[in-house]
Amino acid sequence: MPKGSEKLTNARKEEIVNACASLYETMGFKDITIRDIGEKTSFTRTSIYNYFQTKEEIFLALLQREHEAWIADLETIIHQHESLSAGEFAHELAVTLERRGTMLKLMSMNLYDMEGNSRLENLVSFKKVYAKAMRTITCCLEKFFPYMGVNDIQEFLYAFFPFLFGLYPYTTATDKQKEAMEIARVNYVQYSVYEITKSFVTKMLFFFEKENVPETHQS
């Protein structure tokens, strides 16, 4: 990379990721090609390979950016509130996820393809941000629910993060899927990301409160 070109490199990477995000709003992951992405940028398609070797690396960069935006929202919750009840925190957390539809869709639908077809350095970069998201959730729990011990927090994380991977399919169904469920007589009730997350997180936190608060009162 030529000296002094880091700013240009970052700007072009951002333009490529923006193009990918725009296409993903109306096209499926498998249908989008490097050519499609290149046509939405201001430079030649072949120049993309100077920054990303595969389309999966571009999508992984998009997923990383989505996580960074989510972390920023979580940090805002920490800084803006001195205390939150279980219901209040569940509401705040649900709002942050409601804004991250692209993140949830990529996590549930395309993660294995992205990780399998990306260079190790790109995957490590994403995993570092993913780990930061887990640490930020941990910080939220430590601040707002001090009765939760290390094991409690670990249990919450092991339930909450796998929950995220299945959230998108349960809140988004295509017309074809809805028709199939109707024919199969599946009792399908569609809930929003906000509704499912708020309910899940509230129940999880109430469980830990029930397990821990009585002991605190006795001490």
Rank of each mutant, 00 (worst) to 15 (best):
G149V: 00
I137V: 15
E182Q: 13
A86K: 14
T54V: 02
E98R: 10
L157P: 03
D152T: 09
L164D: 03
E14M: 12
L164V: 06
C139R: 15
G4A: 07
M107D: 00
E56R: 06
D73S: 15
I196G: 04
K55Q: 03
D31I: 03
F160P: 13
T33Y: 09
F29K: 00
M114I: 04
I37C: 12
T172N: 15
L164T: 12
K127R: 13
T171D: 06
F161K: 02
L60F: 04
N187M: 01
N212V: 02
V95R: 11
S85Q: 08
S192P: 01
R185N: 14
T138S: 06
T197K: 01
C20T: 06
I153H: 12
R135P: 03
Q154A: 13
S108P: 05
L164I: 05
A21I: 06
L104R: 09
Y24Q: 03
F163G: 01
I58L: 04
F161S: 01
G38R: 04
L164P: 05
N10M: 08
L205V: 04
C139A: 15
R65W: 02
V129E: 14
I16Q: 02
S199T: 11
R135Y: 08
F208V: 04
T138Q: 10
F43P: 01
V150W: 02
T136D: 09
S22E: 14
E68A: 03
E155W: 10
S42I: 09
T9C: 03
L164W: 11
L123G: 05
T171L: 05
S42M: 09
I78Q: 06
Q53A: 10
K143L: 08
A159D: 11
K7Y: 03
R12I: 08
N212G: 05
L106A: 11
H91C: 06
Q190V: 07
E39G: 08
K13S: 06
T172P: 01
M114Q: 03
T202M: 10
C140K: 01
T26D: 12
F206K: 12
K7S: 02
E179S: 01
Y191Q: 12
L164R: 11
Q177I: 02
Y158W: 08
Y188I: 13
C140N: 13
V124M: 13
H79A: 15
L106I: 08
F206L: 13
V213L: 14
V124I: 15
R65E: 14
E56W: 06
G101E: 12
K176T: 04
W70V: 10
F89L: 15
A90Q: 11
